[in-house]
């Protein structure tokens, strides 16, 4: 299982803040996970269409090639706007 977290405008668009997901066979990177989530359709298609969505694995920002493993905490969010 992995823990998925969604923040800010993405959380509101999906209507979900977090979920637990059994890592599907063949999904080994953040980029592959995005494609998997986009395949849910509807609001989830943002994972395929958005160029600006950011990802973090275990609370560190990563790129789409970053590897995933069971137990990971994976977060998706829009570009940050603090300060």
């Amino acid at each position: 299982m992995i823990k998925l977290l969604y923040f800010a405008s993405l959380r509101e668009a999906l209507g979900v803040a977090n979920e637990a997901l059994a890592l599907p066979v063949g999904i080994a990177t953040v980029g592959a996970l995005r494609a998997h989530l986009a395949a849910r359709g509807g609001a989830w298609e943002v994972f395929a269409t958005s160029k600006s969505l950011r990802a973090a694995v275990n609370q560190a920002m990563v790129g789409p090639e970053s590897a995933l493993a069971a137990g990971d905490e994976v977060a998706f969010f829009p570009p940050v706007t603090g300060g």
Binding site: F7, A56, M61, F77, P78, V80, T81, G82, G83
Partner: peptide, 13 residues
């Protein structure tokens, strides 16, 4: 401040 604005996970509504 410059790094905080682009790297720390805060979002304003």
């Amino acid at each position: 401040m410059d790094y905080l604005k682009t790297r720390a996970p805060f979002w304003k509504k």
